[in-house]
Design a protein around this nucleic acid. Structure first.
Lengths: 141, 141
DNA sequence: ACTAAATTTGCAATAATGTTGCAACTTTTA
DNA sequence: TAAAAGTTGCAACATTATTGCAAATTTAGT
């Protein structure tokens, strides 16, 4: 836990962000979890600790700094995730598949599974890809 | 347009839905477009014609019946799309890539581009996949 | 074509979610 | 340790989504 204190501080400092309780706590939640989190999840965990607005702004800041990345969803929620491997470097979060478990509903970054390229129709130029697979994760197997 | 009248009617009847003005209009919007639509888009097109609630319920009904399918997004909106090929059969909408144009922001179903399979880590069982590519579409090229 | 049954719609109320400006407070810098 | 920079919480507001219910519309049976 002392370990994690300095880990959150380091990540924040590396990204030139002031080290505040809210940011440490929220970053800690991501570090303590393998899955992705939605705004609502974070509110649940932090309770009355911080204002809703602070949570919104913290998540937005983390996205801007590349500390967390967005995961597409089909319900209208925004999912945020910290990548296992690369978050400490703060870049290149982009090429992995996301897995959504149908049992525990967690969303997990499969950092080692690269999104394959596809052949697009004439006239289409690709720039970036996202891929999500759902099914049963290794914990729920 | 007479053509399209009966087309919407047919799709609705095939799915055992009452043929109403709202459903015909909204289905017509999808048929008239290549791209996907969000609730907000539909409201823009229909104006004061129908209640917001009706639009919500219509879209939900269409999803349940498999007339339209959902497309994942990273902002918190829900995108709905009718597939070019398969919608008349009302099933198997599931295996194609979605393309989001960075210029016109339209989301397009690439019905002919199949989502490739990926090798998952040990313990993960796949069930269904989604893939989105963004870049520049053939119209904006 | 007419009526009863089934379905759908609109309204009103309510809930949930997200945004903005600003003053007070905290963190950083030097 | 004080000034500057950055962050937070509050309040107000805006947007988006959901529910129950009565009125209206559509469908099915005759």
């Amino acid at each position: 836990m002392d370990q994690q204190f300095t880990m959150t501080d380091d990540i924040l400092k590396r990204n030139k962000l002031s080290v505040t309780d809210g940011r440490k706590k929220i970053l800690g939640l991501f570090l303590a979890r393998d899955g992705a989190l939605a705004h609502a999840d974070i509110e649940k965990f932090t309770g009355e600790m911080f204002d809703r607005v602070t949570v919104y702004r913290t998540l937005q800041t983390f996205v801007e700094k590349g500390i967390v990345h967005l995961i597409p969803t089909t319900d209208n929620s925004i999912l945020y995730a910290l990548c296992k491997e690369n978050c400490e470097e703060g870049h290149h979060h982009d090429n992995h598949v996301h897995f959504i478990c149908d049992v525990c509903t967690k969303t997990i970054c499969l950092d080692d599974v690269t999104i394959p390229k596809v052949k697009l129709p004439k006239g289409f130029t690709p720039n970036h890809s996202e891929m999500m697979v759902n099914g049963v994760c290794s914990d729920c197997k």
